[in-house]
Simulated assay, not measured.
Amino acid sequence: MNRSAAAPLPGKARLIAAALVSAAAVVALTGCAGVEYREDICSSGEYPVLSVGGTGSACVPDKQEPPAGFVRYPEGKVPQQVDDKWDVYWNTHTLDKDGNIIDAPDAG
């Protein structure tokens, strides 16, 4: 028996084909459900810096010092991704001119 492309599949093959189509539809509709995209604070080759006395930040090339009015974040408290623990923390805290962590003046 020579089967053409339009011939119906036997029962078991039809069931497998339906399952594969359903699985593909679920993946297409949900994208990468469960895999959360997190945006990096800085691009590769840069590090984040914090404005002294405020909550502003910037990214500086790895081999450069922070510009005037900015400092490196304290070790272990550097935000890596948008809305991570330290990114959220530094929205309400800052460093004073002596490097002490203080409440941000505009964190009202």
Rank of each mutant, 00 (worst) to 15 (best):
N2Y: 14
N2D: 15
N2C: 15
A5S: 14
A5T: 12
A5M: 12
A6H: 11
A7G: 03
P8A: 02
P8M: 07
L9P: 02
P10K: 05
P10L: 01
G11D: 10
G11S: 10
K12N: 00
K12R: 10
R14W: 00
R14D: 06
L15V: 01
L15F: 08
I16C: 04
I16R: 05
A17W: 07
A18D: 00
L20V: 01
V21A: 01
V21Y: 07
S22Y: 08
A23G: 10
A23Y: 11
A23E: 01
A24D: 03
V26N: 08
V27G: 08
A28F: 09
L29I: 04
L29M: 02
T30M: 00
T30K: 07
A33L: 03
G34Q: 01
G34M: 02
V35N: 07
E36H: 11
E36N: 12
Y37M: 12
R38W: 03
R38E: 11
E39A: 05
D40V: 09
D40C: 12
I41M: 11
S44R: 08
S44W: 15
G45S: 06
G45I: 01
G45D: 04
E46V: 04
E46H: 00
Y47D: 03
V49W: 06
V49I: 10
V49P: 10
V49L: 11
V49T: 10
V49G: 06
S51D: 13
S51N: 11
G53H: 00
G54N: 14
T55W: 13
T55H: 04
S57H: 15
S57K: 15
A58D: 14
A58E: 13
A58V: 10
V60Y: 03
V60N: 03
P61T: 08
P61G: 06
P61S: 05
D62Q: 05
D62I: 02
K63V: 08
K63R: 14
E65A: 13
G69F: 08
R72V: 15
G76E: 07
V78H: 12
V78K: 09
P79N: 09
P79S: 00
P79T: 06
Q80M: 15
Q81A: 05
Q81E: 05
V82F: 02
V82S: 09
D83E: 11
D84R: 03
D84P: 03
D87R: 06
D87H: 09
D87M: 02
D87E: 03
V88F: 00
V88E: 04
Y89A: 01
Y89M: 01
W90P: 05
W90C: 02
T92D: 08
H93F: 07
T94V: 05
T94I: 02
L95Q: 15
D98M: 13
D98I: 11
D98V: 06
G99Q: 14
G99S: 08
I101A: 10
I102Y: 13
D103G: 15
A104H: 12
A104G: 14
A104N: 12
P105T: 13
D106V: 05
D106T: 06
D106N: 08
A107W: 02
G108D: 08
G108S: 06
G108W: 06
